[in-house]
Nucleic acid binder design. Structure first.
Lengths: 231, 231
DNA sequence: CGCGGCTTTGATGTTCATCAAGTAAAGTGG
DNA sequence: CCACTTTACTTGATGAACATCAAAGCCGCG
């Protein structure tokens, strides 16, 4: 992990229009000067479960997984987040310690701001607060909806749903490199590694996808979508 | 459903200290005068999925279930909420229409306020906004955690977890009347009705609980807790 | 180049949904 | 208030879906 303390280049950051449209120049400059950007290599831990929440962390580039370790030592992936999908949202305002860990699935860059500053800003700038609320609400909603969707599907449907999600929501491409192991896919969809592998192989045999190691190419998307919906 | 338009009795409402501690008297009076309290009998619909969000709804008394109807017509219960567990939280600020329905599991009373008013208040009063954020964050967190807990358990563990939850979080008593049918329990824990019934019967045979229709008495709570944790 | 983790496939048993059939309870109309 | 209908509840039998166990090949890394 390398610190990359920039001069105030926040003007061009997408974060500005997304979040700080309602923040005046004075406030904005202050945040901009005290923020720290951090780089993480694939696999590195960005936030650690049970550690103290002191920063407001935002994903600028890369891809991360949000997960927790259950009481019996098994990891459960909660969601995969891409830039501007608000990383440190969930517990930030209601807990003193993280309920979840975040690690980088691809090389990633975060923008870290002091949480107290953000809270102060929230308290003094209502429009900004409303911005945060809307974003939080939308992110939680998406996660809960995904859980519900997954819960009603069985193995094949879940794997298909996962592949469609990767293709349509993350990579915007029918061919992509899986950013995670088969085991992690299993932890994400709530099944076992072996059955994820088996299902992928079946999809390959049925000529819906091609597999080259971690590279997946979706050939028959319609069929896959049908399985994702009804499986 | 009967409207019970009160004079401004909000001063004694628990909601005030919980939510409106940061709101000044002028603002508070205005809200108080325009709010509407509504009563719902057990089984009545409080909020309907896909309908337009126009009010900020808060549960004052009673018990409700939050659920959605999946694409294939099956109901999935998201959570059971009791007073001050913020009913209309989830989609309120990020969507124009409800993603979920809410119905009364017991006779309930809600306090309904105009959503635009609340949004305005949020924008002009940062402390109030921070209050809302914290509450939302905590509610979402709880729901997500429960999903994760459930997902890693199998049938027996889920039923036990459900019973412990009812006893410890909702009724604060080892004997209670189930506020829902076996079918609804199944929709809540993501299993079939038949298997919920079978499991309850087994718990009865193993002398962990007594069952009289909808009345449940937990006899061996330790054993039940062990199953809830490890099942 | 050898070790550990990731991947794959097969065999086996457990868990669970589904189907079926019957009883009890609760609501409905005469 | 009683016959009737519907809905909720219950138990058993069966097969499908899935986890687990086992074994072997692969790959990356020290």
């Amino acid at each position: 992990m390398a610190d990359a303390q920039n001069a105030c280049d926040c003007e061009e950051c997408d974060l500005k229009s997304l979040f700080f449209s309602s923040v005046n120049q004075t406030e904005f400059s202050r945040l901009c000067n005290q923020k720290v950007e951090k780089s993480f290599a694939k696999g590195e831990v960005i936030l650690l479960e049970k550690s103290r929440i002191e920063e407001f962390v935002y994903l600028k580039s890369g891809l991360v997984k949000l997960f927790r370790t259950s009481g019996h030592g098994k990891e459960q992936i909660i969601t995969i987040a891409k830039p501007f999908d608000f990383v440190s949202l969930l517990s930030v305002f209601s807990n003193s310690h993280y309920n979840y860990s975040v690690t980088a699935l691809e090389d990633s860059v975060t923008c870290n701001m002091d949480l107290e500053e953000i809270k102060k800003l929230t308290a003094t700038n209502g429009d900004f607060a409303l911005n945060i609320i809307e974003k939080m609400s939308s992110v939680s909603d998406k996660i809960i909806l995904e859980f519900l969707e997954m819960r009603q599907k069985q193995l094949h449907g879940r794997v298909a749903y996962f592949l469609i999600h990767m293709s349509d929501q993350i990579f915007y491409n029918d061919e992509f490199d899986l950013p995670m192991s088969r085991k992690e896919i299993a932890e994400y969809i709530g099944m076992t590694t072996e059955n994820v592998i088996r299902t992928l192989s079946e999809f390959r045999k049925d000529k819906m996808i091609k597999i080259f190691g971690k590279t997946i190419e979706i050939i028959d998307k319609d069929k896959l979508k049908t399985i994702a919906e009804f499986g």
